[in-house]
Structure formats: structure tokens, C-alpha cells
């Protein structure tokens, strides 16, 4: 099985001593739609930050499409696109410029990047906003702009860090349809989301991370099979099966009294 992303024993301790990742290993097959799930502060954004070269790891190694990131950072970076959790666009930049400039940083000349950017903006439903400043977009539109920006250099591996947070239902559905066309074309997607029904529908593989360690990973069916009615503790609200498995794996153990 060819791997789009192969992470071995990844560790991250932030400068203030926070151990965000404590020996994470993760294998994402090529062409997969992979969900990385975990509660707030579990280390998902940190993992994506390291895999995209924005955060320095403190241990371990990883390969992107078989290329060791430390040995060949430029080659590895070309293959990766990222939609970050937090908005990070130039507020005063125009939508089309933001996408085209991103191509520029990958060495793509404007003449090539412009038509690509137009097509991407159409795909994410922003073509009528092409000359609007980013600060004048709604939150969901800004997120879609970041998706277009992440794809300008045609990456093989796309990291989506909560891409649907704040995106309305209709747009979310069309976004998923669009992202599925990407995986159909062979793009690998690693996604984090707190909407587990979304992950359940889309992802082939899942990993659940808690406090910087992977507590479960496998195919969606394998993970769902861990659903155990006996452990079902929630009296009131009941979520999907994946939600219940997620809670069983990440819930604080009840302290013995």
C-alpha cells in the first residue's frame, strides 16, 4: 500500500512545556479520505502544523508521498496543501490576488495561476467575489477562499483543519461533493472535524487522538465496530455510533470515589 503520509513517533513539546504530541504514528494511504478526530487540545492542529512545515517538531519523522520531510523539505512541501483552522489571509487582499499569489510562492507564474484561480473560485462558489477584499467576506466564504488557495499548486495531499466550521449546510454539502471529486482524482485528504456525522459519511479511515496520543485507528467500519451498547452511558442526548465510540475512547475515566 502506497502512503501519502507516513508519520513515525512524532513528538512535540511547545516552548512553554506543553506536550502536544507524545509519539504519534499515523499512516494515510494514497487517495484516502482520512479523518483525524479528537477533543479540543488533543493535538490535531499541532500535527497538521508539523506536517506542513509550520511548526517545528521535537522528535520523530514523517514522509510525504515517500519523501522524507527533513531530507527534502522543498520537494515535500510542493505536494502538500493546507486549509488551516484559523483564518490566515491578508484581510485587505483581493480574493483573486490571494489565490494567485499563493501560486506565486510555489513558483507558478501569474499567466498560469490566473485561469487556475478563476476555476478554483468558481468551484468553491466565490467567482462573483473575485475582486472583493477578504475582510468583506463572510466567515464561511473566507473558509472557502482558503480551500481555493490551498489547491492552486495542485497538491497531492490536502490537510483540512475543521474546514466546515461556520459553513452553512448547503455550502457544506456542496463542499463535500467538491472534495470528493478531488479524492476521485487521486488527491489524498486528511480532515479534522468536530462534526462526527460528517466524518462517518465521508472518511474511509479514522484515527482518534487524545492528549497527544492515538487511541484508535483503522477503517471506519473497524472503528464503528468498537461501538459497545453496554458502555452506553448517556441517558439524555444520543449521537451517532461514531460519536459514542469517540466518547468512549476519549472520555475522562470516572474517578473512583
Amino acid at each position: 500500500m502506497e502512503l501519502a503520509l507516513d508519520i513515525q513517533n512524532l513528538q512535540k513539546k511547545y516552548a512553554d512545556g506543553t506536550p502536544a504530541l507524545q509519539g504519534v504514528s499515523l499512516q494515510v494511504p494514497k487517495g484516502d479520505f482520512y479523518a483525524l478526530l479528537g477533543p479540543n487540545g488533543a493535538g490535531k492542529t499541532t500535527l497538521i502544523g508539523i506536517a506542513t512545515g509550520l511548526v517545528n517538531k521535537t522528535g520523530g519523522s514523517f514522509k510525504i508521498d515517500g519523501i522524507d520531510f527533513d531530507a527534502h523539505p522543498e520537494k515535500a512541501r510542493r505536494k502538500v496543501g493546507v486549509v488551516p483552522q484559523n483564518l490566515n489571509v491578508d484581510f485587505f487582499g483581493k480574493v483573486i490576488d490571494i489565490v494567485v499569489n499563493q501560486g506565486g510562492y510555489y513558483g507558478i507564474p501569474r499567466s498560469v495561476a490566473l485561469p487556475r484561480a478563476e476555476a478554483l473560485l468558481t468551484a468553491v462558489g466565490l467567482s462573483d467575489k473575485r475582486t472583493t477584499q477578504a475582510r468583506q467576506l463572510s466567515g464561511g466564504m473566507q473558509r472557502r477562499l482558503m480551500i481555493a488557495r490551498a489547491l492552486i499548486h495542485e497538491p497531492d495531499l490536502l490537510f483540512l483543519d475543521e474546514p466546515t466550521a461556520g459553513v452553512d449546510i448547503e455550502m457544506r454539502r456542496s463542499m463535500w461533493d467538491y472534495l470528493k471529486t478531488l479524492t476521485a482524482r487521486g488527491v489524498t485528504i486528511l480532515l479534522t472535524t468536530h462534526y462526527l456525522e460528517e466524518a462517518e459519511q465521508l472518511a474511509k479511515h479514522v484515527a482518534i487522538i487524545n492528549k497527544g496520543t492515538i487511541v484508535a485507528d483503522g477503517t471506519m467500519d473497524e472503528i464503528l465496530a468498537r461501538y459497545d451498547e453496554a458502555q452506553q452511558q448517556h441517558k439524555g442526548y444520543r449521537g451517532s455510533r461514531l460519536e459514542e465510540v469517540f466518547l468512549q475512547l476519549t472520555r475522562e475515566p470516572e474517578k473512583p470515589s
Binding site: 512545515g53 509550520l54 523539505p73 502538500v80 490566515n88 484581510f91 499563493q102 510555489y106 513558483g107
Partner: peptide, 18 residues
């Protein structure tokens, strides 16, 4: 501004630009 407010310096930092 690009590292602190917008954080859009990341646009360049993720890219292969040396």
C-alpha cells in the same frame, strides 16, 4: 502584521520558497 495579525506569513512558510 503578517506574522501577528493576519498570520498570512504562513502562506509563504508552507511553500517551498527558501
Amino acid at each position: 502584521q503578517s506574522k501577528f495579525f493576519n498570520r498570512n506569513i504562513d502562506e509563504i512558510l508552507v511553500s517551498p520558497t527558501p
